[in-house]
């Protein structure tokens, strides 16, 4: 059954969109990731114009993150103070990102920049994830559990504007979380991702936050950043397709629940390797499209002013 998407201005199979939502939702439930980094490239692969894919995916991520934030809030695993510092950076970053998006779109370079961002970040994150999960697998097989130092003193602790984050039991400079939030905000606006895949490792390894606080706090930041992106993309570029977002999220809410239930039964480490392989596969496909000679060197676009 075809449906005409009013903002994307093309018709797509409803069941394809629901299926994509469900598929990415299952992965989200399995691995606790938002799935934007898979959904946006998929939308572009099926022919949705990249600006619409990015903005509508941000809209869908609002729905994906809200129930997670509420669940973590009830459990008390959200560090609101840290979340607000991350968010301050995130709001500035996403404003910057949407402005860059509009500029690049006028220059005809937005598709390229979206693809390049994906190649770079999926490449880095995919490789790190692959290395990490393979190491975890090996360790498990050998049965040796190594323990890292509890607290390492690095250059990050020398930055000014120190703040006390009671919930995370941290006394660190607010500059670092602000910068992390900023980067994630820019990426959210340009790539249509929540940015958890960057923020979570950064919070653990750069800020040294306790893992119990990381998921809830990052989701808190993501919820507000993707909302900001949705609002700004709608206001500046009119690229949010609500029908598209609703169809994707209808599929994903079901998929997430299936994924969570599956995740309880499946061996985690092996599946992390699979997720890493999937991330790398998307990265390679996008890179391949950038370097192979296109069928037609020319492209057309109604002029945006």
């Amino acid at each position: 059954m075809q449906i005409y998407l009013p903002v994307a201005e093309l018709s797509v199979d409803v069941f394809l969109l629901l299926g994509m939502g469900a598929g990415v939702g299952i992965l989200s439930g399995l691995f606790g990731v938002g799935g934007g980094f898979l959904m946006t490239p998929l939308l572009i692969f099926i022919g949705i114009p990249p600006p619409v894919a990015v903005a509508s995916e941000a809209n869908q991520l609002v729905a994906t993150s809200v129930s997670g934030v509420l669940a973590h809030w009830r459990r008390g695993s959200v560090d609101f103070k840290m979340g607000l510092v991350l968010l301050a950076g995130g709001v500035l970053g996403s404003t910057l990102g949407v402005w860059m998006f509009k500029l690049l779109r006028g220059l005809g370079q937005i598709d390229l920049v979206i693809s390049l961002c994906y190649v770079v970040f999926l490449g880095i994150v995919g490789s790190l994830m692959m290395a990490e999960s393979l190491r975890a697998l090996l360790r498990k097989r050998r049965g040796v559990a190594r323990r890292g130092k509890l607290h390492r003193h690095t250059w990050i602790h020398g930055l000014p504007l120190k703040m006390r984050f009671q919930k995370s039991r941290l006394y660190i400079s607010a500059v670092m979380p602000f910068l992390i939030g900023l980067l994630v905000g820019v990426l959210a606006a340009i790539m249509g991702v929540g940015g958890g895949f960057i923020m979570v490792p950064a919070m653990i390894y750069l800020l040294g936050m306790p893992t119990s606080m990381v998921a809830g706090t990052s989701l808190f930041q993501i919820l507000f950043v993707v909302s900001t992106v949705t609002l700004l993309q709608s206001a500046a570029n009119q690229t949010v397709d609500v029908i598209l977002a609703l169809l994707l999220l209808a599929g994903s809410v079901v998929g997430v629940q299936v994924g969570i239930r599956l995740g309880a039964r499946l061996p985690g480490e092996q599946f992390r390797v699979l997720l890493a392989a999937l991330v790398l596969a998307v990265c390679i496909k996008l890179l391949f499209d950038l370097v192979t000679t296109p069928d037609d060197l020319f492209s057309i676009q109604p002029d945006v002013r």
């Binding site: 809209n59 869908q60 609002v62 729905a63 994906t64 993150s65 809200v66 129930s67 997670g68 509420l70 669940a71 909302s227 949705t230 609002l231 700004l232 993309q233 709608s234 206001a235 500046a236 009119q238 949010v240 609500v242 977002a245 609703l246 999220l249 209808a250 809410v253 997430v256 629940q257």
Partner: peptide, 22 residues
């Protein structure tokens, strides 16, 4: 009404996500 549209899009997604979680 691009700004109002943005708010409506966010509210729709919030409600849908909250409902699904509930």
């Amino acid at each position: 009404f691009p700004i109002l549209h943005g708010f409506v899009a966010i509210i729709l997604a919030l409600v849908a996500g909250w409902l699904a979680g509930a």
